[in-house]
Design a protein around this nucleic acid. Structure first.
Length: 540
DNA sequence: CGCTTTTGACCGGCGC
DNA sequence: GCGCCGGTCAAAAGCG
């Protein structure tokens, strides 16, 4: 009987399928009879249905396993044939002695199905919990980063305020407290609640003694204003940068770390045919220049995810190898980031934070590139993460163009989405292999099917030229958090130990889609964009 | 119509 | 002081 079939199939296979062979969502509908009807496999033929008295000999079972022939052909015993028959066999099932046994099995089937339903429900609950926890984790991570940076700036600011007061005593009312109203007007709440970094930067920058000694007191950019050409613009933080550049000397002893934080740069080298690597943030191009020594123009972008975000980046192709895209990040986001942007943002923030640390802000730290390099990439060679001391600003270069990972050597085409970026705060630098992400974890996640997570990934045969499905069509928009979380949840379920890293990978992958979308809105759409391989950051 | 990109001009820093 | 260079601005153009 079919129920007896279903019973044996379910009872034998259901404990294995949910987590291993079938996606959870598709597994349960298959638990019922369709499986039995469409697949009269040899499993069914094995002794479960046969009455003990009719148990086939061992030889028969072996034959059944090794031959894929239909059941009725391979069956050497009448009883088995009768048992494995279709629904019409009920006529043949006149064997009344099996009735109670079948009832019992039917009952057992019902029980198992109920149990599976309970497990399914529990699984869904766990998924929801996981997505919730993942979201909270991201939020907390950002909050922690913001607090750390704010805390550091606060210390610096307090020192500078003390010094300003001392100068006020010396110079009387000559020194205004610019930091009280230095913030640009008309900003949204987003900045109010999250822009401590930039606003504090503005305050501390403006209240430095150096600034106060200038004749440009009271104006943020006297040079511009003296032209009568430019009033204070909403983009004042950039002028704040400029302002800082104007007065770099005297205040260095007090705002060294602050300036370092602001000027610390993280340069990422990655092979990409896309005009921009995807980092999950929204960027607006505000300039392009031909840089000396490189025939490729350098593009300047600023973060537009929040008004007044000070983060900028420069994108330029390497002169020696134009398949290498060099992206240099500068500044720290002053707003919450979507999961898609966490990886890169955390990396850049981590680099800046490391520069802010005592050892790194010292000359020793600057002059010892390997310290920072190894701190950021504990498992990488120094050639993959270098610190430039000769540059005007401390610059960490993350070279993603090499592929020293033994795992990837073993599976050379299997990890085009491996993401090295830090996903946590600087204290997590040493977490080592957990920072390494294998994108294969997201296999079967249809959310990413359009993001070149082709299924060949699992079979280690990802073809770079393989045609890709169209990217997600969300021009200039971040993928919805819900989508991200849902997809992340599904992937994380498979291996909860990689929660943070998976989230980063997902976000970066989704960011890849965004980059594609961005590219479509600019000039040309490069179908090879997603072939950008950020593949070389390795764990051990 | 609003947003983004393009692009020439402008500015300050720096080296000579 | 001058010129070069990196970085930024903002008007114009492009685009959906």
């Amino acid at each position: 009987m079919d129920k007896g079939w279903g019973l044996t199939l379910d009872s034998s296979s259901s404990p294995l399928f949910p987590s291993t062979q079938l996606p959870n969502d598709t597994m349960f509908p298959l638990l019922g009879f369709p499986v039995n009807l469409t697949r009269p496999s040899k499993d069914n033929e094995v002794d479960f249905f046969s009455h003990p008295s009719n148990k086939p000999p061992p030889n028969f079972i072996k034959n059944e396993i090794h031959h894929d022939a239909p059941l009725h052909v391979n069956t050497g015993l009448q009883l088995l044939t009768a048992n494995t028959g279709s629904d019409q066999s009920t006529v043949d099932d006149g064997v009344s002695s099996d009735a109670e046994d079948k009832r019992a099995k039917n009952y057992e089937l019902v029980q198992l199905q109920e149990e599976l339903q309970r497990m399914n429900a529990e699984n869904k609950k766990l998924k929801e919990m996981l997505s919730h926890v993942s979201g909270n984790y991201s939020a907390l991570q950002m909050h922690l980063m913001a607090l750390m940076q704010q805390n550091h700036r606060t210390e610096t600011t307090q020192n500078e305020v003390v010094k300003v007061k001392a100068e006020e005593k010396n110079e009387g009312e000559k020194v205004p407290r610019q930091f009280l109203d230095i913030r640009p007007s008309g900003r949204g709440e987003v900045e109010d609640q999250a822009s401590d970094s930039s606003s504090d930067d503005e305050r501390t920058r403006s209240c430095t003694p150096q600034n106060n000694n200038n004749s440009e007191v009271g104006t943020r950019d006297s040079a511009r204003n003296s032209n009568g050409k430019r009033e204070e613009s909403p983009d004042s933080e950039s002028q704040g940068w400029k302002h800082q550049k104007l007065n770099p000397s005297n205040a260095m002893d007090q705002s060294t770390t602050e300036a370092t934080m602001r000027k610390a740069r993280v340069s990422v080298r990655a092979r990409s045919e896309a005009p921009m690597i995807s980092d999950g943030c929204q960027w607006r191009k505000y300039g392009q220049k031909m840089a000396k020594g490189n025939p490729c123009p350098r593009a300047y972008y600023r973060c537009t995810m929040a008004v007044g975000c000070p983060v900028r980046k420069q994108v330029q192709r390497c002169a020696e190898d134009r398949t290498i895209l060099v992206t240099t990040y500068e500044g720290t986001h002053n707003h919450p980031l979507p999961p898609a942007a966490m990886a890169m943002a955390s990396t850049t923030a981590a680099a800046a934070s490391m520069l802010l640390s005592g050892s790194m802000s010292s000359a020793d730290g600057i002059m010892n590139p390997n310290l920072l390099a190894r701190a950021i990439l504990p498992c990488s060679s120094s050639s993959m993460a270098t610190l430039s001391a000769s540059a005007p600003f401390p610059t960490v270069t993350l070279d993603l163009t090499h592929n020293p990972n033994p795992l990837q050597i073993q599976r050379p085409h299997a990890a085009p989405f491996q993401l090295p970026f830090l996903t946590g705060n600087p204290q997590n630098f040493g977490s080592g292999p957990t920072q390494m992400v294998q994108a294969q974890a997201f296999y079967n996640q249809s959310k990413f099917s359009g993001l070149q997570l082709s299924q060949e990934v699992e079979s280690s045969q990802l073809a770079p030229q393989a045609p890709r499905p169209p990217p997600l069509q969300q021009p200039n928009q971040q993928p919805s958090l819900a989508d991200t979380v849902n997809a992340a949840t599904a992937a994380i379920t498979a291996d909860p130990n990689f929660t943070a890293v998976l989230a980063a990978a997902i976000s970066s992958i989704i960011g890849g889609a965004q980059a594609n979308n961005n590219s479509t809105t600019t000039t040309t759409t490069n179908n090879n964009n997603n072939r950008a391989t950020i593949s070389s950051f390795s764990g051990n």
